[in-house]
């Protein structure tokens, strides 16, 4: 059987269950036969209970906010400040890119949607111009008439696409028609007596 001096060194650890299994067994065997060591173990147990029972419970109200306030007042290390500055810049650049991208997409969509409409408006706008051009051609026709030969009406008669657009004269002996393929207005005058 182990000596009390040897076992007493292990009693605290036995109470705390911090011994190796074989040591736990050895102390348990000793305690079964030793009143003195059993008394010491009981004292340790009571001591532990009393320490827990009388342990002060400091009030921690406002503790964490006081710590956070102290932390907020700390001067930031240079590296940390640089890191935070870069992060802020990165964040703002990131949001700038996002806004720019959104604007670009909106512009592209607008262009895609508006182009057919614009074409349509452009087409409508050019039609009056085309008519004006046609009238203009008619206006220059007399100059061409001046150079027209007497045989030309025959040619016009043979051209199935000839289109008499309008009569320029009340005199029925004079015919005026346009020949779109050649972009020409023809004025036919009968042979003068």
């Amino acid at each position: 059987m182990a000596e009390c001096s040897e076992i007493s060194m292990m009693l605290g650890a036995f109470e705390d269950s911090e011994l190796e299994p074989n040591e736990m067994q050895e102390v348990a065997f000793h305690l079964a036969r030793c009143e003195s060591c059993t008394g010491i173990l009981a004292d340790y147990s009571t001591l532990g209970r009393n320490l827990r029972s009388f342990a002060p419970e400091p009030s921690l109200a406002g503790f964490s906010s006081a710590v956070v306030a102290r932390v907020d007042r700390l001067p930031q290390p240079v590296l940390t400040r640089i890191e935070r500055f870069l992060r802020r810049q990165l964040d703002s650049v990131g949001s700038g890119i996002a806004w720019g991208g959104a604007a670009a997409v909106a512009a592209i969509v607008t262009i895609i949607l508006m182009t057919p409409l614009a074409r349509q408006f452009a087409t409508r706008g050019t039609q009056p111009a085309a008519i004006a051009s046609s009238v203009s051609n008619a206006a220059v026709a007399p100059a061409q008439v001046a150079s027209a030969t007497a045989g030309e009406p025959t040619m016009a008669d043979n051209d199935s696409h000839a289109d008499i657009s309008r009569l320029e004269s009340e005199n029925h002996s004079v015919a005026v028609w346009s020949e779109p393929r050649r972009d020409t207005t023809v004025i036919w005058l009968p042979d003068q007596p």
Partner: peptide
């Protein structure tokens, strides 16, 4: 670590006692 003192406050609450 990134300087969020509010997050650190949560850790303080957790371990202060």
């Amino acid at each position: 670590r990134k300087g969020d003192s509010a997050a650190f406050g949560v850790l303080v609450e957790r371990y202060q006692r």
